[in-house]
């Protein structure tokens, strides 16, 4: 038996008894970042493949949500900061070693790109739209001319953003639950899946939705595979890793994780999407909503549980 006590009565807010310095803002930020990354990636993807007209919701309509999600995400990050007046210090240095640092720079780049993307489709989306200023019209023409190049850049940044949402956590060696390289790909896949779900929800074109549902099924499958892999890795790891896994295997996060994230957020929507592909009638909004809620819960749970895990000494 080993018992460790703070005999000097340490009870620091948000540190004791469990670390809880990141509240709802960070998981929301990660969720919105992943969502925007997913939407922008597929908008770029189908543009590069020359399918912009067959996939109108993917390429033209859904991207409107991306800049909104990114701005809201940045705002959530801002709300997380405790020394808000010094926010600008983030953008006075480039520190590649700090995920928080290069992540905020990635956002600083992809957010304007997403605005430009949406702007270039304004005329198609809203008939009669005009930019009023000549220079804006000329800028729009330029963007339209180089849209494929922009799509490539956007795809690359979308992948960086998607992976970043996982790396932000996995870079913390001090938190065993986060400190696994699977978290990067897992968050990427999950983010892309939430992006796809949003597009499927918005799309009115049966063919487009079918195509996206198929891709989404692959993503959900990969995500489930990565989750199993994650726990196998922990179980084969050190004591700290095993204790991290145990939070989900009988510990306090067991029900919320397996029921809400895995079953209701992944398995169930996958079954519904499959049924839909087979021709059964499924309410259009149901699978996307479940995926989105599942994705949000996933990030909340991982952020909260990760802060509980620590080194033992």
């Amino acid at each position: 038996m080993k018992e460790e006590l703070f005999v000097s009565g340490r009870n620091i807010p948000n540190i004791d008894p469990y670390l809880n310095i990141w509240h709802w803002q960070i998981p929301l930020y990660l969720f919105l970042g992943g969502l925007a990354a997913g939407i922008l990636f597929f908008a770029g993807f189908y543009t590069v493949r020359g399918k912009a007209n067959q996939m109108p919701a993917t390429v033209k309509l859904a991207p409107i949500l991306a800049p909104i999600a990114l701005v809201l995400g940045l705002f959530a990050l801002f709300l997380d900061l405790k020394h808000k007046l010094f926010f600008w210090q983030l953008y006075t240095t480039i520190r590649l070693e700090s995920p928080m640092g290069w992540g905020s720079w990635t956002l600083m780049i992809i957010t304007p790109l997403s605005f430009i993307w949406v702007a270039s489709y304004m005329k198609e989306l809203i008939p009669g739209w005009n930019w009023k200023f000549n220079i804006l019209e000329r800028f729009e023409a330029l963007v339209i001319k180089y849209r494929v190049a922009l799509a490539w850049v956007m795809m690359i940044y979308a992948i960086i953003l998607g992976v970043y949402t996982g790396i932000l956590l996995s870079a913390f060696n001090a938190r065993p639950l986060w400190n696994t390289s699977i978290l990067g790909p897992l968050f990427l896949v999950s983010g892309f899946s939430t992006g796809l779900a949003t597009i499927i929800w918005i799309s009115k074109d049966a063919k487009e939705r079918k195509k996206l549902s198929r891709i989404d099924l692959v993503f959900i499958f990969v995500e489930l595979f990565l989750i199993v892999h994650l726990f196998m890795g922990f179980k084969a790891g050190s004591q700290t890793a095993i204790e991290a896994a145990n939070l989900f295997l009988g510990g306090p996060f067991t029900v919320s994780f397996w029921v809400f994230v895995v079953i209701l957020g992944l398995v169930f929507p996958a079954v519904l999407e499959t049924l839909e592909l087979w021709g059964y009638h499924v309410p259009k909004w149901l699978p996307p909503v479940m995926i989105l809620i599942g994705g949000l819960m996933f990030r909340f749970i991982i952020v909260e549980a990760g802060q509980i895990t620590r080194y033992l000494y």
């Binding site: 310095i21 990141w22 405790k82 928080m100 802060q307």
Partner: peptide, 10 residues
Amino acid sequence: CIGCGACIES
């Protein structure tokens, strides 16, 4: 310091 909390997590 902007109070982002990254160092506390680390």
